[in-house]
Nucleic acid binder design. Structure first.
Lengths: 341, 341
DNA sequence: AATTATTGCGCAAACGCTTGCACCATTAAG
DNA sequence: CTTAATGGTGCAAGCGTTTGCGCAATAATT
């Protein structure tokens, strides 16, 4: 059996409660006793039992990280690793641990969240996605459980939830504007899963830009695909089989862009000479495409960092007001866009 | 305060112990009482407190996942997301949760592991790397704590630890043989961080293949870099500034290959016409390079799955004998290799 | 010198659950 | 009809911490 607080107490000739207070560095214990107790702890190799502590404490010092239909598909996109990097960094600084969701379906995930909340496994929750019809957020809201959303609440009063997001609408608009500025009139849009709020924001921005430029919106220029990998390729086929092919593409995700570029190459459509492309995220390998892609950097790492920051604040002070943090984005011009002659 | 086992007991007119036994579906309770208790649980919306359970139980139903110098840099490589996918899948099936390490340095990580072990936070540990001079494994070994290594133990008796690995030596040898078969004599090697066992295995395989083919080993053809991204590019510069440039490259990692290809393109060295490349891992986007890369698929997902499987077995039966699982690899021929004229 | 504050520590209850053991009805066996 | 199994529950002691409260002993105040 492991060495407990009682063993330490006995060894140091004090009461268990004193040991506990030494651990929490209570000012009510004299320096002398503290030293004696610490000595005993060292000698016995004492380490606190975290479960017991959590039980008594009602605090676990761990935060739950919820991914969309789990890591299963999510992790195919470098977005998640990167956001988790940000989370990890902050969490570590603040002495928090991370508990990862593992469920695959929406229902499984909801069940897990309930476990985390009711079971007292975590002190707060980080939602790494915003889905259109999400059941997790309402649950959390209803129970007044601390959480922060990465993304934007949908169908829910923004003032009721703390969230960290990019201005995806504006990013998409800017990007489309940019393409228009380069002289493109036939601009296609390859979007992600329409269940995700980010996708609808992208589309709105795209549409607005076209409208501002008096370019007619063509249904057949808009294609959505859930899977980042295959999606990119399928989408290209669809778009390329239209009579009047687009000359430029707004692509939802850098990874998709890899697929898009490959597929276009196969069709002997050259980027950027025959086709301009802009996409989103600027994940690590984005600059390694051939040609290197123009994309908008959304500072994924910061999303994670800030979100964690907010969450920890909320955990420490549950009555803190809800907050909305917008992480700036930045267009990174590389070599997939070209001016129309 | 949340509803506890006692509330349920009162409601169902039984003792708390009975409720507990109903939860664990003990055969000693009659169906009738079980029904009544379950009814009460539903009505009150009972959910067990996991900390209390863990405390009484000495089991947490969660497994600790340790990454090399943390997610921080690790996650830059799709290897980790993918292996975690495998882990998640199995863990979920078996009702286990995942607790992620967040430390950045070796010492921080060791400290975290100690916390997990002494603190009773996890039932077992998954080591996602094998480093040459690792302190975590000896610690775990010494404490007889259940763990499984993904990779291969180094400087430690293999029979003492359960591990899941590829035959990286053989993979590297095969790949080099393949290049030799294609007529290449000047074959370079771009390796990863020499602290990792996988890197030394790769190199051994490479060297052996050359030796078998009676090709002289050239020091200057061997380059190592820790960072997958920048590393690839730096390495190319080094290798290309040699008088007698290599005509083929064995690259430690697919992501590196992206960088390598880009850099070569910039130098107007065309792949595969002027340079053949083979690398390792076959992560999701590997097939999206231009040209699509030839690589060896190491079944990362399975590594995670199997490792988790083994770990759970070990948790359930600590006296189970240590096991060594080799996941097969497979050369995926795409378009970065060409026969020498 | 008597009273009040202050400091330093211990007692014991609580956190919510599990589990060995004892106990009381039944029912089966002798 | 007694005794022995058996089946179904309850009691109470843990699991290792935290923390409100109380009690000495000492220091500060009249």
């Amino acid at each position: 059996m492991a060495v407990t607080i009682k063993d330490v107490a006995r060894r140091a000739n004090v009461a268990p409660s004193t040991v506990s207070r030494v651990i929490s560095n209570s000012s009510r214990i004299s320096e002398k006793t503290k030293e004696r107790v610490r000595e005993a702890m060292k000698e016995l190799g004492y380490h606190p039992n975290l479960n017991a502590r959590s039980l008594a404490n009602k605090s676990t010092k761990t935060i739950g990280v919820i991914m969309p239909n789990s890591a299963k598909v999510a992790f195919q996109n470098p977005f998640f690793p990167e956001v988790i990097r940000g989370i990890t960094t902050k969490a570590y600084q603040e002495g928090y641990g991370l508990y990862l969701s593992t469920g695959q379906t929406e229902d499984e995930i909801l069940e897990e969240v309930k476990q985390m909340v009711y079971g007292g496994r975590v002190d707060g929750i980080l939602l790494l996605y915003s889905r259109v019809n999400d059941k997790v957020m309402p649950f959390l809201l209803e129970h007044g459980f601390p959480f922060v959303l990465i993304g934007r609440p949908y169908n829910i009063d923004e003032s009721k939830v703390t969230f960290v997001n990019n201005d995806n609408y504006k990013a998409a608009k800017t990007v489309t504007d940019y393409l228009v500025l380069l002289g493109h009139k036939r601009i296609g849009f390859i979007g992600g899963n329409l269940d995700y709020v980010v996708t609808v924001d992208h589309m709105k921005g795209y549409e607005q830009a076209l409208q501002n430029a008096n370019i007619e919106l063509r249904e057949d220029y808009i294609v959505h695909h859930a899977e980042v990998k295959e999606g990119g390729q399928d989408a290209v086929i669809e778009l390329m089989s239209i009579d009047q092919r687009p000359t430029a593409l707004v692509v939802a995700d850098d990874i998709m862009t890899f697929g898009v570029i490959r597929m276009l190459e196969d069709m002997e459509v050259h980027v950027p000479d025959d086709m301009s492309i802009v996409s989103f995220n600027n994940v690590m390998i984005s600059e390694l495409s051939s040609p290197p892609m123009t994309t908008v950097d959304i500072h994924i790492y910061d999303l994670g960092l800030q979100a964690t920051h907010c969450l920890i604040n909320k955990i420490n002070d549950p009555d803190i007001e809800e907050k909305k943090v917008i992480i700036p984005h930045r267009l990174i011009k590389r070599q997939t866009c070209k001016k129309m002659e």
